[in-house]
């Protein structure tokens, strides 16, 4: 082998880069996040139903919130017709967080697991439980 010093150094750097994620996340305890919906408001509801069915909310809640923001901020329209024709006030703090008052156990449980940082709370005021 020629220039073995440089070749081996280069290969070591390559192996170090490839193995970095394995070393970084070694022994991580993988716990599937279970967002909790047992807040006082939800427990008092006769029919436990969000503005849309569960499957839709799971996949599209970010898109829904984005549409709400555009509708409220740009068109001044705060009325949302949800699942089953029921009308809701488009508001993250007053509608969403009224029922889901447990941001830490609801929003954050999945978002932290997925390492995503939505920019909702750049502008909105997070629920009080979060301030402690």
């Amino acid at each position: 082998m020629y220039d073995s010093g440089k070749i081996i150094t280069g290969l070591l750097v390559f192996v170090a880069i490839v193995s970095f994620p394995f070393v970084y996340s070694r022994g991580t305890n993988i716990v599937k996040p279970e967002p909790k919906i047992d807040t006082p408001v939800i427990q008092q509801m006769a029919v436990k139903q969000c503005v849309q069915p569960r499957a839709f909310m799971r996949a599209e809640h970010m898109q829904l919130l984005n549409d709400w923001r555009d509708s409220v901020v740009r068109d001044g329209n705060r009325v949302y017709v949800g699942f089953g024709g029921k009308q809701y006030n488009m508001s993250l703090q007053n509608t969403c967080m009224h029922c889901h008052s447990n941001k830490k156990e609801f929003c954050d449980s999945c978002h932290n697991f997925m390492s995503v940082k939505p920019y909702c709370w750049d502008c909105h005021i997070a629920p009080k439980e979060n301030k402690s």
Binding site: S25, R26, F113
Partner: peptide
């Protein structure tokens, strides 16, 4: 077309920590 991202992350984390799971 959305996928179950929580399931995806469980799978990828399982791969990287050599404890494979298939949700």
């Amino acid at each position: 077309t959305k996928v179950d991202v929580v399931g995806v992350k469980q799978l990828t984390m399982g791969l990287i920590s050599f404890r494979p799971v298939v949700p």
